[in-house]
Design a protein around this nucleic acid. Structure first.
Length: 825
DNA sequence: CCCAGCAGATATTTT
DNA sequence: ATCTGCTGGG
């Protein structure tokens, strides 16, 4: 990449002079930002470090294009990473220039592709009411196929097949093209190809796309139907892509297709080229009508924040941008307007350990700010308590809850935090994670809607077949499927002829009733004559389906206490549908299902709600908060254990950690726990190597790993037995709190160990080494926080012995004997 | 066909 | 620890 060209405003390439009003759009920008907003040319790469104001630059660039009349809103396509980011960008552009912004496409890759596919689906064997399969749906389908093909005999699991298919689709590969280059003498490969091909057939039959197809099939569409592609090439004159470092090959290809010159292709394409599969490396269509040049492309990215390699993000898309788009201008934004210098110094020190990156140092003129706070808990609950306490302290000091966020590496870590937050009455909300739409009852409700919207989607019809219980079991289901097969009708249509299925009268009645409900709902949701249904149709249809199917009644009649919550969830879902109607008066059931499929919980825009946000570090990308808590900063968590074996894994984890800490404006807290429960097992955790990469002077440990660690007694000897080793630490000396002096040369190439022996003897009054404490049922103990109690039982062995204690006032607890602050009395 | 009880897998990150 | 899927008795 080139270095940042220092540009004098006005010297930039061909540009239309923005009329009056441009000045305010440009106010307060630094020279690089100004260049990024005003440069006009075919291709622009904005390398934007964390917090360098790229969103502001992007929105102003769009506003500037619109205000100067260089573009109509409809000529702009802006791609963001999440729907939430899209919504925010739209709001900000509208804030700058008002209603003149209406008509722009600002959306994610997936949403944009769905819009295109819905319009063009008929071109290649789909209908516009196609279903979108989420990961769970495709997993379910693959589960069936793996079984049918007996692929498990070759070591294939639904999960592994799913991930392989996804990776291939991200490379625009399909079963056929994969088979051409695979070793087909390997039976496992053959059966994989079979499953892959069958999977694709089933999707097509169900009139469904999976997430990856949304991108890949759009690329296919553009390549197979140049005149369709031309429509969009003519339309979108300015394409802007945010988070470009996280685009995968399919997304890259899509952008490439869209930015080609209009081909003016008149040649009739073969609509069934390659049997409905994707086409590869097509010859560039000749520019017949010497028409429009390709759209202008602006991409924004930061290779230090590339954290989606696992789903095919290819960092080369950004690093080779100039090669791909000759004549591209590159602008570097390095001044950070978000964080204090302490936070940035820590971030720089950490990311500096990635060896294959271009050096880039963020700087801030905000001053040092507060030190980073470190804390080491005995357990994840202890850690969570620290976070909750600190949140409360900050709140009392005047910081709104909505300005605080807690990050973790894996979704499962949110549990402990939730428990403690509830107990501490800290208002919080979880972004992403186990989603509302993942609950069984919501999926059931969705399946009812899909059964109406897209009856070809057999999976959905099968799902609701016996929900609620109608006495329809495996035997009946197979009978229906066979009848449909024999008569060449769909599974759904077979339901309308219960008498011919050869099943008992009771079951016939049940099927007939289900068919009637679906038919009635169809009349509401999809009026025959083609007139638009009323905006309340979706909510009405949903209520009808849930009511007349007996689904709600069955839940209400149940005495399982969980079912009460399920009814509430369904009520909420109906409320979601009503909300949708209010926001989208013209919205159809298909629009509703699309939104549900693509808009995750994290996209909810109600940040005003005054709660602390909990999310994974991945979800945190693009967001910022006054105070940030990064939790679970432990080896095997961040960097995650599984990443260790993957090429580039640890480096990606480092970037992820970097993303986490650069979200903070004023206060950053790094915390970890010495023990963590996973799979019901308590494991001993070690501080993350990344902690040592932060200069010690920047972290103010409330309780350091050394404090919590035992004083090297027998307990930790086993752990110490691990080879200790140094590793090119950050140029800024690693902390003496971490006793780096005791380590061998830092240029040692040995794998880094974070064995606790790095954390010296800093025994505090609070810490104990209970390694040899013998406890038995009936013993009485005293706990620092919980007071006195009686041991009910002791389970586990050695370092993992757990005391089950009934405290006199604090109730029942399980304690890891080795580290719990307890004593026998 | 339904249910209870048990065995086994399962959690990295996301659209 | 929790969820899913299987199995055997109703």
């Amino acid at each position: 990449m080139t270095e940042a060209p220092l540009i004098v405003p006005g010297s930039a390439g061909p540009r239309t002079s923005g009329a009056e009003g441009q000045d305010e759009l440009l106010a307060g920008l630094n020279p690089q930002q100004l260049e990024a907003v005003t440069y006009r040319g075919p291709a622009l790469l904005i390398v934007a470090g964390a917090g360098s104001g790229k969103t502001s630059v992007l929105t102003r660039r769009i506003a500037s294009l619109l205000r100067s009349r260089e573009a109509w809103p409809s000529q702009i396509l802006a791609i963001t990473f999440t729907n939430k980011a899209a919504g925010e960008m739209r709001e900000r552009v509208e804030g700058l220039i008002g209603d003149a912004a209406r008509g722009m496409w600002i959306s994610t890759f997936h949403s944009a592709c769905v819009r295109i596919l819905r319009r063009e689906a008929q071109q290649f064997g789909y209908t516009k009411s196609f279903t979108i399969y989420d990961s769970g749906d495709s997993r379910a389908l693959l589960k069936r196929l793996v079984k049918e093909h007996e692929a498990d005999a070759y070591g294939l699991t639904p999960a592994s097949v799913q991930s392989r298919i996804s990776k291939l689709k991200n490379e625009l590969s399909d079963a056929e093209s994969y088979a051409r280059q695979a070793n087909m003498s390997d039976p496992a490969e053959r059966v994989f190809v079979e499953v892959f091909a069958d999977y694709q057939r089933q999707l097509q039959k169900a009139n469904a796309f999976d997430f990856d197809d949304l991108i890949g099939q759009t690329v296919y569409l553009f390549r197979a139907f140049p005149q369709v592609a031309d429509t969009y090439r003519r339309r979108f004159r300015h394409i802007l892509v945010d988070e470009y470092q996280d685009t995968n090959h399919a997304q890259y290809a899509l952008i490439h297709e869209l930015t080609r010159p209009v081909s003016g292709a008149g040649a009739a394409p073969d609509p069934y080229a390659s049997n409905g599969m994707m086409i590869f490396e097509p010859d560039p269509a000749p520019a017949a009508d010497a028409g429009e040049p390709g759209a202008s492309l602006t991409v924004v990215g930061d290779s230090d924040q590339s954290i989606y390699a696992f789903r095919g993000a290819d960092i080369r898309n950004i690093s080779e941008f100039e090669r791909d788009f000759p004549g591209a201008r590159v602008v570097l934004l390095e001044q950070n307007y978000r964080s204090t210098q302490n936070i940035l110094s820590a971030a720089n020190a950490v990311i500096g350990n990635n060896f294959d990156r271009k050096d880039k140092k963020l700087w801030s003129d905000k001053g040092d700010g507060d030190p980073i706070i470190g804390f080491t808990g005995y357990s994840q609950h202890d850690e969570a308590q620290f976070v909750a306490d600190e949140v409360e302290a900050l709140h009392r000091a005047g910081m709104p809850y909505s300005e605080m966020a807690v990050f973790y590496r894996t979704n499962s870590q949110s549990r402990a935090l939730e428990e403690i937050f509830i107990r501490s009455a800290v208002p919080y909300k979880i972004m992403g994670g186990t989603k509302f739409y993942d609950r069984a009852e919501i999926k059931d409700a969705l399946a009812y809607l899909v059964a109406v919207a897209n009856p070809a989607d057999e999976m959905s019809v099968r799902r609701i077949l016996n929900k609620p219980r109608r006495g329809i079991g495996d035997v009946t289901e197979t009978a229906i499927a066979r009848f449909a097969e024999e008569h060449g009708i769909s599974f759904r249509d077979a339901l309308s002829m219960p008498a011919q299925l050869g099943v008992g009268p009771k079951i016939q009645a049940a099927i007939g009733q289900l068919d009637a409900v679906l038919t009635e709902a169809t009349a509401i949701l999809i009026p025959a004559s083609g007139e638009l249904p009323p905006s309340t149709a979706v909510a009405d249809g949903l209520s009808l389906l849930l009511g007349k199917s007996g689904y709600l009644d069955a839940l209400r009649a149940s005495r399982d206490p969980q079912d009460e919550a399920r009814v509430e969830n369904l009520d909420e879902f109906v409320a979601v549908a009503r909300d949708f109607a209010r926001n989208n008066p013209e919205g159809t059931i298909v629009d509703f299902l699309t939104e549900v499929a693509l808009v995750s919980d994290a996209d909810d825009l109600d940040d005003e709600s005054g709660s602390v946000s909990l999310m994974t570090m991945h979800t945190a990308k693009g967001l910022e908060y006054d105070a940030v808590f990064v939790t679970g900063v432990e080896e095997d968590l961040i960097p995650h254990r599984i990443s260790a074996g993957e090429p580039g894994g640890p480096q990606e984890e480092r970037r992820l950690f970097y993303v986490g800490i650069t979200r903070a404006r004023k206060r950053l807290h790094l915390s970890l726990a010495m023990t963590r429960a996973q799979f019901g097992e308590v494991t001993v955790a070690m501080p993350s190597r990344f902690l040592q990469e932060i200069p010690s002077g920047l972290i103010d440990w409330r309780q350091s790993p050394g404090d919590v660690n035992s004083r090297g007694g027998m307990q930790s000897r086993a752990l110490n037995a691990r080879r200790q080793g140094g590793f090119g630490g950050s140029s800024s000396g690693s902390g003496d709190r971490f006793a780096v002096k005791a380590l061998p040369g830092r240029d040692s190439l040995k794998p880094l160990s974070t064995a606790m022996d790095k954390f010296p003897n800093r025994v505090t009054a609070k810490m104990r080494d209970n390694g040899d404490l013998e406890l038995a049922a009936g013993d009485r103990i005293r706990h620092v926080d919980f007071g006195e109690g009686r041991v009910d039982a002791v389970t586990g062995e050695g370092a993992k012995r757990i005391a089950h204690v009934r405290f006199d006032s604090a109730g029942q607890k399980k304690l890891l004997i080795k580290v719990a602050p307890i004593e026998k009395i």
